[in-house]
Amino acid sequence: MIIGLTGGIGSGKSAVALRFAVKHGIHVVDADLKSRVVVEPGRPALQAIVDRFGDAVIQQTGELDRAALREKIFSDPQERLWLEALLHPLIRDEIVTDLASAASPYALLVSPLLVESGQHLMTDRVLVVDVSEETQLLRTALRDSVPQEQVKAIMQAQASREERLKHAHDIVSNDQDLAALHKQVDALHGRYLSMAAGDTI
């Protein structure tokens, strides 16, 4: 059984995934990490990005300058769509391979673009980490030390809160402290174990 975990930027997906992995030993596949793998030096996708945007998106180490690329794609929706068309199929292949190696009773696919990229179609259930948009904005601006305008642009490129919730089978509310978050995750783990064992809940 594959659970798709999603939520907007700054919602707390990483904290939820960490609890599933560390406390309960669940196999976690992080689409963000896979998105980094497919643009590593020597990979064809990186060369395609350089051909499109020039050397300004490459660091001196030869690695992708994600901040520079982000600026370009979030100021031009057409460039973002081009990048997604290039990367999403490659990321999907990496995800499928990793999920196939899972040994836990169920696996977690963590992706901020689970709904937008169609990755939710690879999952049996969708778990949404939900917070208010104001909280997303504040947390992300503080965490990443970026202007709120840039955070807003990223939020606009992601599915709306309403759209994500529409796809949700399960919801974790992350508007309290970590203990409250963990309590919700632990309860869901129990349900997922039952489902994976074939019990209907």
Score class of each variant (00 low, 15 high):
Gly25Thr: 03
Ala48Val: 06
Asp55Gly: 05
Ala56Phe: 06
Phe20Gln: 09
His24Lys: 12
Val50Asp: 01
Lys34Arg: 10
Asp30Ala: 12
Asp51His: 06
Gly4Trp: 03
Lys23Val: 15
Ala67Glu: 14
His27Glu: 07
Ile3Thr: 02
Glu40Val: 09
Lys23Cys: 13
Val37Asn: 01
Leu18Glu: 15
Pro41Met: 13
Ala45Arg: 10
Leu33Asn: 13
Gly7Val: 07
Arg36Gly: 07
Thr6Tyr: 10
Ala48Asn: 08
Pro44Ser: 02
Arg36Tyr: 02
Gly25Phe: 10
Ala21Met: 09
Leu18Phe: 14
Asp55Phe: 09
Leu46Lys: 01
Gln60Trp: 00
Val50Asn: 01
Gly12Lys: 07
Phe20Ile: 08
Leu18Arg: 15
Thr6Cys: 08
Ser14Gln: 14
Ala21Arg: 15
Arg36Ala: 08
Ile26Gln: 00
Val16Ala: 03
Gly10Tyr: 06
Ala31Gly: 02
Val16His: 04
Gly4Tyr: 07
Ala17Asp: 02
Phe53Glu: 05
Gln60Asp: 14
Val38Arg: 03
Lys13Leu: 03
Gly25Lys: 11
Asp65Leu: 13
Val22Ala: 13
Val22Cys: 09
Val29Ala: 09
Gly4Gln: 08
Asp30Leu: 12
Val39Ile: 13
Ala48Leu: 11
Ser14Asn: 12
Val57Gly: 02
Ser11Glu: 09
Lys13Ile: 06
Val50Ser: 10
Asp51Ser: 15
His27Thr: 05
Asp32Thr: 05
